[in-house]
Computed example of a mutant assay.
Amino acid sequence: MNLIKFKLLKLQFLFPFLFVNVFAGNPESANNILKTESENLVLTFYNNAHLEAKGLSYDAFKEGITGYLNLLNEGKIQNKKVLSIIDFSQPSNQKRLYIIDIEKSCLLLNTYVAHGVNSGMLYANRFSNTINSRQSSLGFYKAAETYTGKYGLSLKLDGLEENINHKARERAIVLHPAKYVSQNFINNNGYTGRSFGCPAVSYKDHKKVINYIKGGSVMFIYTNKVDKSDSDLSTLPENTTELFSTYSCIAPKKIQPIYTSNE
């Protein structure tokens, strides 16, 4: 029996505990319970993967995993095994690219990544979806096909959010290696070099990065430095518990039935 089938059978056993008498008695309480359980699952994953110790904020992770789960529901993810988060609230002299194993709830790789030359020096503070802006774009991307270009093995990215990053193809925003992303460059300058808007990584790690995320996985570029409007990707879906139980090792706890006074 494969892992997915096993987890779906586990859900068939688990979910009656969630819903016995809850919806019939108090639907609002049921919704609150499910919301709380969903939030607990996100926090449990974050803690199990020890992401705080590696510098990734809970806010960045929650936004990333929330979008991932919604994109999963929409059928827009081919490679469901990993979620990549670039945290541009951190300076470029810190390792701010996180590749997370969804199934095992662990961090696969944490490494340096550059931002656009017109987004800022040490920090990325300005973002754009405009051609020739040479700024980074925020939001959710899908890792598309690989190719060999002037920098070597590289990976094309498709922006998934209208007016935020949907012009990634037109702008030639790709993940590629660069000599200015290295520990030596940082030691000498205090920051990584900057790209024309691409999330450039080191030659030391680029093949590993690309092999982890290629084939349709989700990449999320986060910041806390600009105001962001709510979107369809910013709220945990109603089936969060089911998705966690199916695609990760983080399973919901059994929630006891709620009995109301009119029973």
Rank of each mutant, 00 (worst) to 15 (best):
N2R: 11
L11M: 14
L11S: 15
F13S: 15
L14N: 02
F17Q: 07
L18D: 09
F19M: 12
V20S: 12
G25V: 03
A30M: 03
L34A: 08
S38W: 03
S38A: 15
S38I: 03
S38G: 14
E39N: 14
N40K: 14
V42K: 06
N47P: 00
N47G: 00
E52P: 01
A53D: 13
S57I: 06
Y58V: 02
D59I: 06
A60T: 03
F61Y: 05
T66E: 05
T66F: 06
N70H: 04
N70T: 00
L71I: 01
N73H: 00
N73P: 00
N73Q: 05
N79C: 07
N79S: 07
V82E: 05
S84M: 12
D87E: 07
S92C: 11
Q94W: 02
L97T: 04
L97V: 05
Y98Q: 04
D101Y: 01
K104A: 11
S105N: 11
L107T: 03
L107N: 04
L109Q: 11
N110K: 14
Y112T: 04
V117C: 15
V117I: 15
S119T: 06
S119M: 06
G120H: 09
R126F: 14
S128H: 11
N129S: 10
T130G: 06
A143T: 13
E145C: 09
Y147T: 04
L155R: 04
D158Q: 08
D158F: 01
N163A: 14
N165Q: 09
N165R: 07
N165P: 09
A168N: 10
R169W: 05
A172L: 12
I173Q: 12
V174P: 03
H176I: 01
Y180N: 07
S182D: 05
Q183L: 06
N188S: 14
G190R: 11
T192Y: 05
R194Y: 06
S195K: 09
F196H: 14
C198F: 08
P199D: 07
V201F: 09
V201S: 10
Y203C: 08
H206A: 13
K207N: 14
K207H: 08
K208I: 10
K208G: 04
Y212A: 03
S217I: 00
V218Q: 02
V218T: 08
F220G: 03
F220T: 01
I221H: 02
Y222T: 00
D232L: 10
D232P: 01
L233F: 07
S234G: 10
T235S: 15
L236A: 13
L236G: 12
L236C: 12
T240N: 09
T241A: 15
E242K: 13
I250N: 02
I250L: 08
I250Q: 03
A251P: 00
K253D: 08
K254T: 05
I255A: 10
I258G: 03
Y259K: 11
E263H: 09
